[in-house]
């Protein structure tokens, strides 16, 4: 396979995953801003920071629902906006049309065409429906890939990109809110923090899963455990890294060669398996999150080098 094709598939998956993550973040912001006693600005600011879009808002700029939605959903100049992500995903898809199945292309192209026609007024009128539609678009694409794509090297690059990006987003999400997760802030969360964390679980579509596993016990270490170490939750760091490892291992079997990225990911997966949440808190959650974000970037670089892109 052409290296350029592998690169485009990898990035296409990343951009689509990022678009979905941004939609989830906006959903989280919307919920938090509705809480009693919420300071709209503060909640939306944390959303902007988690999306890595702080630069789009200068100091003193108003950061309310309308501004954030315009920036994070429609602004083509904001590289993390949903529209920008779809543009780039589609450009990558167009460059590797032959590597996609018709269903995948049509799903992506339909979504891109729809998004191109969405206006700021529509979003203001009906934000929840817009966000639902964006999530269902990426679900459609993922479903098309699941059911129509050959389980060959193309699929492996696609899934490596998706897992890596999802891991990234979970880390950013946690980093914005890490201070509330720290045990020092008290073992019992006040109501507002409690709701914030429910909002975060909403953002990752995980409220029910969390209740099922932890019976509604919103202790900081359990929430952190769920998002970082739980092996069954599809947005958790541990889950994303095992998915990444599986994709890389399939490539190694296929090509008969292992590279730096394989060793790095293997090591990370083992560490996550052996870790306890207390260790992470002892070392410092913030430091752990930053270090893992750096690790993600390192894996991305090693993967490009290994496959010549």
């Amino acid at each position: 396979m052409l290296s350029r094709t592998a690169e485009s598939l990898f990035w296409m998956a990343r951009y689509l995953e990022r678009a979905e993550a941004t939609a989830r973040l906006v959903e989280m912001g919307r919920r938090m801003a509705m809480l009693p006693g919420a300071y709209g600005q503060e909640e939306w600011s944390s959303v902007v920071a988690a999306a890595g879009a702080g630069a789009a808002f200068g100091p003193g700029a108003r950061v309310g629902e309308a501004e954030v939605c315009r920036s994070l959903i429609l602004d083509e100049d904001n590289p993390s906006s949903i529209r920008a992500c779809f543009d780039r995903a589609r450009n990558n898809a167009r460059a590797v049309r032959t590597a996609l199945t018709a269903e995948m292309w049509e799903g992506l192209n339909d979504g891109w065409r729809w998004l191109g026609g969405v206006e700021a007024a529509t979003i203001q009128r009906d934000l929840p429906a817009t966000l639902d539609r964006i999530r269902s678009l990426s679900a459609l694409f993922r479903g098309a890939a699941q059911t129509t794509m050959l389980r060959g090297e193309r699929y492996d690059f696609l899934s490596a990109g998706a897992f890596l990006e999802r891991a990234d987003m979970t880390l950013r999400l946690l980093d914005v809110k890490y201070f509330v997760l720290l045990p020092e802030t008290g073992l019992v969360l006040d109501n507002r923090d409690r709701y914030r964390w429910i909002s975060l679980l909403h953002a990752t579509s995980a409220v029910r899963a969390y209740h099922y596993l932890y019976r509604g016990d919103f202790s900081p270490s359990k929430i952190a455990h769920f998002m970082i170490l739980n092996r069954d939750f599809p947005c958790s760091l541990a889950f994303c890294y095992s998915g990444l490892r599986a994709a890389l291992n399939r490539l190694a079997d296929r090509y008969g060669a292992r590279h730096d990225c394989h060793a790095t990911v293997e090591k990370a997966v083992r560490q996550l398996q052996d870790r306890e949440m207390d260790d992470i808190f002892d070392e410092g959650l913030h430091e752990f999150l930053l270090e893992t974000l750096r690790l993600n970037a390192q894996v991305s670089g090693e993967l490009s080098r290994a496959y010549h892109f």
């Binding site: 290296s3 350029r4 060669a257």
Partner: peptide
């Protein structure tokens, strides 16, 4: 995606 080496044409692939 292409380069020429020793009078032959090659494409850059993942392998």
């Amino acid at each position: 995606d292409l380069f020429v080496d020793e009078g032959l044409c090659w494409m850059r692939t993942t392998q």
